[in-house]
């Protein structure tokens, strides 16, 4: 099962006008975090907050809806969010921590919960993990090179980045829109991504991402009881507009296909590594 275990899958967007403006697609992650914060499911969340250096976000412990909105939108760059777990628990004194992250981050948190060698009293403080679909990620220098060499846009002028239908789209703050085939960016992918088997963050409480849904909407997959309950209560309060996922070519079929591709890429890379004597994670 390449999509992992999930209780439901649907196409969703937020009804909040502010979030629609600042978010990447359906505004799911931000809306869920704010809802969790307001209903007391979490006391704060670890998010990728923009810094003075454009498109080089840093982990940040957000404890107010305003801070969560400020961190909305996808950044196609590495951000060591897990580094902030201890800061959230110790310096901010949070007992119920939320986090948004791709498979690598949520999986690392789950491993930490199972084997907390250096994470004293953290396992039971993880209250909510929101997973983000991810095919691969870039280092800061990588994304800077992509935007400046391929799109010919100064990274300081980038308003929004997006990946859709095999194109990497950069919108500048002058309103200019430049598209480049995703294939060209593959030279800049971080090497560790090639052995990652999972697209849909199967170890999260609830996963979301644009793949499988039309523009302005997101695919949502509640997985655990925490994820299910939170999403249901948000829907009941009218925070989300939902519709069934399109089973066809641009919907479920595409999501399954891309997830299968990533799974196969991982298997292939691991086999190739073993062949030349490189160790794989045991």
């Amino acid at each position: 099962m390449v999509l992992g275990k999930y209780s439901d899958i649907m196409t969703v967007k937020t009804t909040d006008k502010t979030l629609q403006k600042y978010s990447q697609d359906g505004g799911i992650a931000s809306a869920l975090l704010i809802h969790a914060l307001e209903t007391g499911v979490i006391e704060g969340a670890i998010v990728a907050m923009p810094t003075d250096e454009p498109w080089n976000p840093e982990p940040y412990v957000a404890t107010t809806p305003e801070e969560i909105v400020a961190a909305a939108g996808t950044k196609y760059v590495l951000c060591p969010l897990n580094n902030a777990l201890k800061i959230a628990a110790r310096e901010n004194g949070l007992d119920k921590i939320g986090m948004v992250g791709m498979h690598c981050l949520t999986y690392a948190v789950r491993k930490m919960q199972l084997y907390p060698f250096g994470a004293r009293h953290l396992p039971n403080k993880m209250a909510l993990l929101i997973g983000i679909f991810c095919t691969e990620n870039f280092s800061y220098t990588g994304i800077k090179a992509i935007v400046e060499e391929l799109h010919k846009v100064n990274i300081e002028h980038v308003q929004k980045m997006d990946v859709s239908k095999g194109k990497m789209i950069v919108t500048s703050n002058m309103g200019e829109r430049v598209e480049v085939p995703v294939k060209l960016t593959h030279n800049y992918v971080q090497p560790g991504c090639y052995i990652c088997p999972d697209l849909t963050a199967r170890t999260a409480d609830i996963s979301t991402g644009s793949i499988g849904s039309p523009d302005g909407w997101s695919t949502v997959m509640p997985r655990t009881k925490v994820g299910k309950d939170l999403f249901q209560s948000a829907v009941d309060m009218g925070l989300f507009e939902t519709k069934p996922i399109d089973p066809g070519k641009t919907g479920m079929e595409m999501l399954t296909k891309l997830a299968q591709n990533k799974w196969d890429r991982s298997e292939k890379t691991r086999a190739e590594r073993a062949e030349i004597g490189l160790p794989n994670p045991f």
């Binding site: 982990p59 590495l78 951000c79 060591p80 969010l81 897990n82 580094n83 902030a84 992250g101 690598c104 981050l105 690392a108 948190v109 491993k111 930490m112 990620n137 280092s139 971080q190 090497p191 560790g192 991504c193 090639y194 052995i195 990652c196 590594r273 490189l278 994670p281």
Partner: peptide
């Protein structure tokens, strides 16, 4: 070639 920059 295994690092994914998660900060754990």
């Amino acid at each position: 070639g295994l690092c994914i920059g998660c900060g754990t």
